[in-house]
Design a binder for these strands. Structure first.
Length: 429
DNA sequence: TCTGGGGTCCTAGGACCC
DNA sequence: TCTGGGGTCCTAGGACCC
């Protein structure tokens, strides 16, 4: 069988790069992006990485370092990042039909059937084009399995940054390069398994490639065994052009301040649930169950702790915000307890089924008329909120003051997704 | 004071059934 | 001493991903 050619395109420091596209002054300066609620650092420019600030670090622990080095810090701006992601993916799709959008900042390409004379050169050009068209720098790794493409991408970033493209297939002795990667750098090997492998003297990707498969299977399950197979060039994962239907859809948030009253939590949970409804309708799915949970601050052991969750079964699978909010409030009432400082809550929709499976019976179901009217209402709500503003029309039960809302003090404008925040060019100078 | 959010898959073990 | 055995389904928890 002919060997496959997979490429993995990964945006460099994606969120930080997005901020730079619209603010030229940031080029060459250290840039960091925070999680929701301004808690942790979730994206870092190379300059920030070089300062030794780790991924996921709570910002308050690094405040001094940040000030001393003039790190420019942003609150997360997901509408902006989502739109920039879309532009990058659209650019890739112009040149490669077989594309799998793997995450907000990564795509797998299957180049096997394109019959490109020089794959590495093609990828270098692709990289240059994406940067030119979108302003986002990317790295590309190429290999005969997805795991090898991922590993090649890691090498492109770590060892060959000046080129930004690495192709295992250019080298007669790929093991020499696998040896440069620690097992934890591999796709599918996390911290726990890396520690385990280390104890058994399997330290780098080459060691794992030649490890005993039975042993790996026993201790790391089939997932670990697949990593070994893929390192040896046996494909266990094909390109998935169409996204798989989702099994869960969640909306959870930490609060900007502790919330103690039932009313506040009801507002927050109602808001979360409306968002779930919107996501479900976009996915064209219906939820069978809703899970609602509440948490106090797990990091503060001086406060009394309480966490609980409940699953509410819906009378019928639904994506109607009104139905969902009623169910979520029922769940919240079941688990809310007075006397705690709540830090986080969330709603998760479970047991998703495709909307097309929903069966109405025109002659028997008396709820049909009402259900149809409500689904038209939801369509209208979605249209308005897409066009005007994400929260233009909402439900009264969500409240207006939003005292639970997260902290976001350093947000950049939604340059590309909000008319009010579009960049202005001063042509008078 | 301050610590993200949204997912997937696999496995072990219990419940249940015949 | 010996206490049936095998199959399926479900769930919680763990590990991983970005």
């Amino acid at each position: 069988m002919k060997s496959k050619i997979f490429a993995l395109v990964d945006c460099n420091n994606f969120y930080a790069s997005c901020e730079r596209v619209f603010n030229g002054k940031l080029v060459g300066r250290p840039v960091a992006v925070l999680s929701n609620n301004d808690g942790c650092i979730i994206a870092r420019s190379n300059e920030v990485k070089e300062l030794g600030i780790p991924m996921g670090a709570p910002i308050y622990q690094w405040q001094e370092m940040i000030e001393r080095n003039n790190v420019v810090v942003f609150s997360a701006n997901f509408p902006l990042y989502g739109d920039m992601s879309h532009r990058v993916m659209a650019t890739l799709a112009e040149f490669v039909p077989d594309i799998e959008i793997y995450s907000i900042d990564e795509a797998f390409l299957d180049l096997t059937n394109l019959h490109i004379p020089n794959v590495t050169e093609f990828c270098k050009e692709l990289k240059a084009t994406v940067e030119k068209w979108t302003g986002i720098p990317v790295s590309i790794g190429i290999g005969s399995s997805k795991t090898l493409a991922k590993a090649a991408n890691k090498l492109a970033k770590k060892k060959f940054r000046n080129v930004g493209v690495f192709n295992f297939q250019d080298h007669n002795n790929p093991d020499k390069y696998l040896e440069m990667l620690e097992v934890e750098d591999l796709w599918g090997i996390g911290r726990k398994h890396a520690k385990f492998l280390f104890r058994h003297n399997i330290n780098n990707a080459k060691d794992l490639k030649y490890a005993d498969q039975g042993f790996i299977r026993k201790w790391l399950s089939v997932m670990g065994q697949r990593v070994v197979l893929e390192l040896n060039g046996t494909c266990c994962y094909e390109l998935e052009k169409l996204p798989k239907p989702k099994k869960n859809i969640a909306f959870t948030r930490s609060f900007g301040h502790y919330q103690e009253t039932y009313e506040q939590l009801e507002e927050a949970v109602s808001y979360f649930t409306r968002k779930i409804g919107e996501k479900l309708r976009k996915e064209e799915a219906l939820a069978s169950f809703l899970q609602i949970f509440l948490l106090t601050n797990l990091h503060n052991d001086k406060l009394p702790q309480y966490h609980n969750s409940v699953i509410v079964r819906l009378f019928k699978p639904s994506n109607n915000s009104i139905t969902l909010i009623k169910a979520a409030i029922k769940g919240l009432k079941a688990i809310f307890k007075e006397g705690y400082k709540y830090k986080k809550a969330g709603v998760i929709s479970l047991g998703l089924i495709p909307e097309s499976h929903k069966q109405y019976d025109l002659f028997i179901d008396p709820e049909f008329e009402q259900a149809l009217q409500q689904s038209n209402l939801m369509d209208t709500l979605d249209k308005i909120n897409r066009k005007v503003d994400a929260d233009a029309v909402k439900f009264a039960v969500e409240g207006v003051r939003r005292e639970w809302w997260m902290n976001q003090t350093r947000k950049s404008p939604r340059y590309t997704t909000s008319w009010k925040e579009i960049p202005l060019i001063d042509s008078s100078r």
